[in-house]
C-alpha cells in the first residue's frame, strides 16, 4: 500500500508507542517541553477560583482567618491545648495555613484521573502536569496566606517582642518542600489506585481528618496533654515536619533532626511508589475510569 520507503533501521522516530513502557522512568524532558502548559494551568486555577465572587482574592486570606478563629475557640478554649506561650492567633494561623495547603493538595491531586478524565480522554500531554500544576497553584495561595501570617508574626516579634524566632527558620523552605512532595506522592498514589476501584476514595476524607489529629496542627508535640502519645506521634511523617516548621518561627516545640530524616526518606520512597503506579496507570486508565 506504500511505495518503496527508505530503510527503516536508519530512521529516527520521534514518538514510539508500545504496549508496555517502563514504569519507573520520569520523563523530565517531556514535562519540561510542556512547561508552558503547566504555567497556563496554574494561571487558570488561580484566576478561575474566585471568578464571579465579589471579594475575589480576598477569600484567600479570609479563609485562614475564619479557621484560625474557630481553631482557637475549639482547641485553645474548649479543649484547652496550650500554644506554649505563643500568641494563639499566630500559632493557629500558621498551623491552619500549612495544614490546609497539605490537605487541599492531597485532596485535589488524589482526584487527578477522575476529575480530568474528559480532557485526558481526548488529548495527550504528560499526565503529571496536572498534579504538578495543582501543587503550584496551591502554593500561590499558600504564599498569600503565608504573607498574612508573616505580618502577624512580625508584629509579635518586632513590636510586642513576645516571640523569639530560632535560627532553624532557615530550614523552613526545605521542610515545606518535603511536605509538598509528600502531598504529591500520596496524591498520585491514591489517584492511580482509585481509577479502577473507587473504594479508596471513601476513605480519603476520613483519613485526612484522622491525619490532622495525629499531626501537631492544633497543638504542639511538647504539650503535656499529648505526652502520653508522643512516641507514637513521631511515627507520623508529618509530625516532625510541622513541629520543625513552627520551631523555626516560634522557637518552641521540638526540632527533631532524626525524625525529620525519617520523614524525608519516607517521602522519597512514597514518591517513587507513587510515580511508579501513576506511570503504570496513566497509559490505560481511560479504558477503565
Amino acid at each position: 500500500m506504500v511505495e518503496k520507503t527508505v530503510p527503516v533501521e536508519k530512521e529516527k522516530w520521534d514518538i514510539h508507542i508500545v504496549a508496555n513502557r517502563r514504569n519507573l522512568e520520569l520523563n523530565i524532558a517531556e514535562i519540561w517541553r510542556y512547561r508552558d502548559l503547566l504555567m497556563l494551568f496554574v494561571k487558570k486555577d488561580i484566576i478561575t477560583v474566585y471568578k464571579q465572587t465579589i471579594l475575589g482574592p480576598v477569600w484567600f486570606v479570609l479563609q485562614p482567618i475564619f479557621s484560625t478563629l474557630v481553631y482557637s475557640v475549639i482547641f485553645g478554649q474548649l479543649a484547652g491545648f496550650s500554644s506554649s506561650g505563643i500568641p494563639p492567633y499566630a500559632f493557629y494561623l500558621i498551623s491552619v495555613t500549612l495544614w490546609s495547603y497539605f490537605s487541599d493538595t492531597l485532596n485535589i491531586t488524589s482526584k487527578t484521573f477522575t476529575d480530568n478524565s474528559s480532557i485526558f480522554g481526548k488529548v495527550y500531554f504528560p499526565r503529571l502536569i496536572m498534579p504538578l500544576s495543582k501543587i503550584m497553584s496551591g502554593l500561590a495561595k499558600f504564599f498569600i496566606q503565608f504573607c498574612l501570617f508573616l505580618a502577624f508574626w512580625a508584629y509579635y516579634v518586632f513590636i510586642k517582642h513576645s516571640i523569639t524566632p530560632s535560627i532553624y527558620i532557615v530550614f523552613t523552605p526545605l521542610i515545606l518542600l518535603v511536605i509538598i512532595t509528600m502531598a504529591l506522592a500520596f496524591g498520585v498514589l491514591i489517584t492511580s489506585m482509585t481509577t479502577k476501584y473507587r473504594d479508596l476514595t471513601f476513605l480519603i476524607a476520613f483519613g485526612l481528618q484522622l491525619m490532622m489529629y495525629a499531626t501537631p496542627v492544633a497543638y504542639s508535640i511538647s504539650d503535656p496533654k499529648v505526652a502520653k502519645w508522643k512516641h507514637l506521634l513521631w511515627y507520623n511523617p508529618l509530625t516532625s515536619l510541622f513541629e520543625g516548621f513552627k520551631y523555626g518561627f516560634f522557637g518552641t516545640g521540638e526540632f527533631n533532626v532524626p525524625w525529620m530524616l525519617y520523614s524525608t526518606c519516607f517521602t522519597l520512597i512514597m514518591l517513587m511508589i507513587g510515580i511508579y503506579t501513576f506511570n503504570k496507570v496513566e497509559k490505560r486508565f481511560i479504558d477503565t475510569v
Binding site: 514518538i15 514510539h16 508507542i17 508500545v18 504496549a19 495527550y124 497509559k283
Partner: peptide
Amino acid sequence: LSRVTAPTKGEIKIK
C-alpha cells in the same frame, strides 16, 4: 495514535 490510551499489543512509530 494520539496517545490517549495504550495498545495491548504492537507498536506505532511516529515522526
